[in-house]
Simulated assay, not measured.
Amino acid sequence: MAGTSNGRRVTSGDVAREAGVSRATVSYVLNDTPHQKIPEATRRRVWDAAARLGYAPSAAARALRTGRSDIVLGLLPDWPIEHVLGRLIQQLTNAFAEHELTFLVHSSAHPARPLREIWKTVTPAAVLALQDFPESEADAMRAAGIEVVMAMHGSAQGKARPPLVSEEPIGAAQARHLADAHRRLGYAYPDLTRLGVLARPRLEGVRKVCDELGLPEPDVRTIPLDPDRAVEAVKAWLAADPPVTGICAFNDDVAMAVLVALQSLGLRAPHDLAVIGVDDIPGAALARPPLTTVVRDTDAVARGLARRIIDALEHRQAPVGPIQDPLRIHVRESA
């Protein structure tokens, strides 16, 4: 088995014996220690021996060498892990890997182990949470030597601060796209309360644009991912006085529930009700009609988050304000 010697983990001592050198030489070669005059032939012999034995330095050894762990612990709230969140996790993994850091994800979905058990076991260099978590937990992490504790949405610093990633511009982009042709907008709110940390600021973005443009307050209705129950919300929008004619949906899943409800009533977007979503999931192009949606640059978000962590670990001054999150609208037939 690779990485073992007689059923145990391969050590630097095994590599030293295989290469016929001292353990110190193995350490100097594998860690690329500067100012060590080691012949190139010896270096090759050490690397060849390590490859034959399947040797990999332990995380503990790396931490001793560098003075910190190479793990960034990502804390996921109890959210559905769907296309966009999965893509963001992969892009965060790639962004941290470029800085020789490992992104390790832990979900709080029941019956996950308590957060404190996780970070005490892993002892990460940094913690990046997608959602706010108790300040007492953040204090305990910092007391244990975890150098960076950040939350994308909300604060882990004990006081209000702008989020690292702002959701308001998404709702604002939706409202501006619809406002030229629609004088009354509705907002399709998700029926999962735990998504409120995302839904509330998106709705606030819609509200601010409506206020700026002199439009009525958006008509907000919760849309379950259930065609029959979504029909009731669509009926209420159409029966309002004046009627709602454009819908900003929390995301593409909610937007497609609105489209299905319209079809159930013998109606169609955008003629009877224009609909715009968020995320550009693969099914958006397959909807009937194809869904207009806001697309965010999750790779830019991931790189921005990784950069904030790296700057903090290296004690550099971090930029003020949210990470730049370029948005564009993929215009299709629904709006």
Rank of each mutant, 00 (worst) to 15 (best):
A233K: 14
C248R: 03
Q263R: 15
L262K: 13
A269Y: 06
G266P: 03
V234Y: 01
G304K: 04
L213K: 10
A240L: 07
L238Q: 11
I310V: 09
C210S: 02
V234R: 11
A230C: 00
R308C: 08
A236I: 06
L238P: 02
R288K: 10
V206N: 03
G205I: 01
A240H: 12
D226L: 14
A312I: 07
I309N: 00
R202A: 01
T298K: 14
L265Q: 04
P218Q: 09
A255N: 04
L305P: 06
R207S: 02
D279Q: 06
D297I: 01
R207P: 06
D228E: 14
L238I: 11
A236F: 05
L238F: 04
A249G: 02
G277W: 01
T245M: 03
A240E: 08
H315F: 09
T292E: 04
V254W: 06
A257F: 00
T245A: 05
M256L: 05
A239M: 09
L291M: 00
V244W: 12
H271G: 08
V220W: 01
L259Y: 04
R308Y: 06
T245C: 02
V295I: 01
G214K: 07
C210K: 04
R288S: 13
L225R: 12
D280V: 02
V275S: 13
V294N: 13
Q263T: 07
A249D: 01
A274K: 02
L265P: 00
E232L: 14
L273Y: 02
P216I: 06
A302Q: 00
R307M: 15
T222A: 10
V206Q: 07
D279L: 05
I281C: 10
P201H: 05
L225F: 05
C248T: 04
L313P: 07
V254S: 07
T298M: 03
E232R: 11
T245V: 10
L262Y: 13
D253R: 08
L291C: 03
A287R: 01
L259A: 12
V294F: 06
A300E: 14
V278S: 10
A233Y: 09
P201G: 09
V258L: 00
C210W: 00
L213A: 11
R307Q: 15
V301C: 01
N251S: 12
D297L: 07
R229L: 10
V231W: 06
C210A: 00
D219Y: 14
V244L: 08
E212R: 04
R202S: 02
N251T: 12
G205W: 06
P243S: 05
V209P: 00
R296D: 13
D219Q: 14
T298I: 12
T245N: 01
